[in-house]
Write a protein that binds this DNA or RNA. Structure first.
Lengths: 250, 250
DNA sequence: GGTCATTTGTGCGTATGTATC
DNA sequence: GGATACATACGCACAAATGAC
C-alpha cells in the first residue's frame, strides 16, 4: 500500500499519435494557415510509421478541417484557416439523427440573433451599418423568383449584425444553424404561395432593425428580430411549436 | 446558347464515395446504433476498392463519431448512437484557433441557459423538478475540496433544466459550451480564494430557480439564471467583458 | 506549351496483436 | 489453451495529378 498508483493504459493507435502531434502544432499556432506539411513520405520518416498510418492521420485531420491534401501537390498538405464547415456538418448530423424539428432550430436562431442585435446596438460602427444597409439593398434588388440571391443577401445581413455584436461564437452558431435550416426547408419556402409577401415583410423588418441599431435601442432591435423570425417561419410550423416560439416573443 | 448547362465536376476520391454511402445508411436509419458494419475485407469486396480505401473511409467515419472499430473485433465496426463529443471537439478547436474569450463563452451560456429555463417553466414535469432538486442536493453534499463532484452535479442540474425546456439543440449546445469552459478555466476556478462562497451562492441560486420553475414564473427563472452565471464568472473577466455581460442582465 | 521529377491516390501482400468462440 | 477471424500496421508497386523548369 502506498506504492505508485499505476494508471490504466488504453491502447492508442499509431495514427492517433500522429494526429495529436500535428493537431497540437496547428492549434497552438506553430503551423499557420497556408503553411505546408511535409510530404507523406517525409512524415513517415519523421514519425517512423508506415505510409498508410500517415495517410489515415491526414484523413482524420482533413475530416476535422485542419488540413487539405491534393493529389500530386509537391508541397504537401496545406494547413487551413478555421472554417465552420465541420461545425455545420456535425450539426447537420445532429439535426438528422436526433430529428431536430424546424421549431427547435427557429427557436435557437430567434434567441441568438436577438442577442446579436442587442449586443450590436452597443458596439455597431458606421461600417457595420453600411454593410447591413447594402445587404438589405441586395435583398430588395433580388428577383422575386431568385430565392438563392435573396437568401444570400439575408445571410449577409445577419452576418454583419453578428459581427457587429462582437461575439464570434454567436456569429458562427447562427451562421451554422441558418445553413442547416436552409438545407432543410429552402424548397418548401421557395414554393410558399405567400413567399413574395414574406420577402417584402422581411425587408421592412430588417430596415426597422437598422433604424433601431442606429438609434442605439438594443431591446427594440431584439424584439423586432424575434418577431421577424417568427413571422417568417410560423406558417410552416405546427400549432404547438408556434406556441413554444411565442413564449420567446415576451 | 440554350444548350445543356454542364456543371463543373470535381474529382471525388474513392474513399469519399465510400464515406457518403455508409454515412447515408447511418443517418437515414438504415443502420441503427449497435449494428455492425461488414468486415473491412467484406467492405472492399462490396465497394470494389482496396483495403486502404476502406480503412481511410472508416477513419473519416470514426472522426465524425458515426462508427467505432476495435482491433480484433470479429463483428466489424460498430455503428454508434449520436454523441456530442464531435461537436465538443470542433467547438474546442474553434475556441482555440479563433481565440474565443471566456466572456464570449459565458455570454453564450447566459443566453441559452436562460432560454432553457424560460421554456422549462412551461413544460416542466414533477420528474424534471425532482431531478433538479436531486442535483442541487448533490451540489450541497459535494466536499468543498472536490471541485469535480460539484461541477458534475452542477452539470446534471443544467442538463435537467435543458431537457425540461424541450429543445434538444439548446440542450446539446449548452452542454458542449459548458464542457469547453470547464476545460479552459476549471483549474482557475478551483483555486479561486472565494470558491466556497461562490459554491454556496450557486446552490442558493439554483434553489431559487427551482422555486420559480415550480411557480411557473419563466421570466423570473431566466433572470435568476443570467444573474447566477454572471456572479459566478464575473470575477474572472476583464472590465469590458463584464460590461458586455451586464448588457444581457437587462 | 511541353516535359519531367515528385507527390498523392489506390491496390495488394504480409506480419503481428487481439477478441471471440 | 487453441483455433479462427479480425483490425492494425508496414512496405511496395502503379496510375494519375500537380507544379516547376
Amino acid at each position: 500500500m502506498g506504492g505508485p498508483r499505476f494508471e490504466p493504459v488504453r491502447a492508442v493507435r499509431a495514427y492517433e499519435r500522429v494526429v495529436e502531434q500535428i493537431e497540437e502544432a496547428v492549434e497552438s499556432g506553430a503551423l499557420t494557415p497556408g503553411e505546408r506539411l511535409p510530404s507523406e513520405r517525409e512524415l513517415m520518416v519523421q514519425f517512423s510509421v508506415g505510409r498508410s498510418t500517415v495517410r489515415e492521420a491526414l484523413r482524420v485531420l482533413q475530416a476535422r478541417g485542419l488540413v487539405r491534401s491534393r493529389p500530386g501537390d509537391p508541397n504537401g498538405a496545406e494547413v487551413l484557416p478555421f472554417s465552420p464547415v465541420v461545425l455545420k456538418k456535425s450539426m447537420t448530423t445532429l439535426a438528422r439523427v436526433s430529428e431536430l424539428s424546424l421549431g427547435e432550430l427557429v427557436q435557437f436562431r430567434m434567441v441568438l440573433d436577438a442577442t446579436a442585435v442587442l449586443l450590436a446596438a452597443r458596439l455597431r460602427t458606421e461600417e457595420h451599418l453600411a454593410e447591413m444597409a447594402a445587404a438589405v439593398d441586395d435583398m430588395k434588388a433580388a428577383d422575386a423568383a431568385d430565392a438563392a440571391a435573396f437568401g444570400a443577401a439575408d445571410a449577409a445581413f445577419h452576418d454583419a449584425v453578428a459581427r457587429a455584436g462582437g461575439n464570434k461564437l454567436i456569429q458562427v452558431c447562427t451562421d451554422v444553424v441558418r445553413a442547416v435550416m436552409a438545407g432543410l426547408v429552402e424548397d418548401r419556402l421557395a414554393r410558399a404561395p405567400d413567399r413574395e409577401a414574406l420577402m417584402r415583410r422581411g425587408v421592412a423588418h430588417h430596415e426597422d432593425v437598422i433604424a433601431a441599431l442606429r438609434a442605439g435601442d438594443g431591446p427594440l432591435a431584439a424584439r423586432l428580430t424575434r418577431q421577424s423570425m417568427y413571422d417568417y417561419y410560423a406558417g410552416h410550423l405546427p400549432a404547438e411549436e408556434r406556441a413554444a416560439l411565442r413564449a420567446l416573443l415576451e
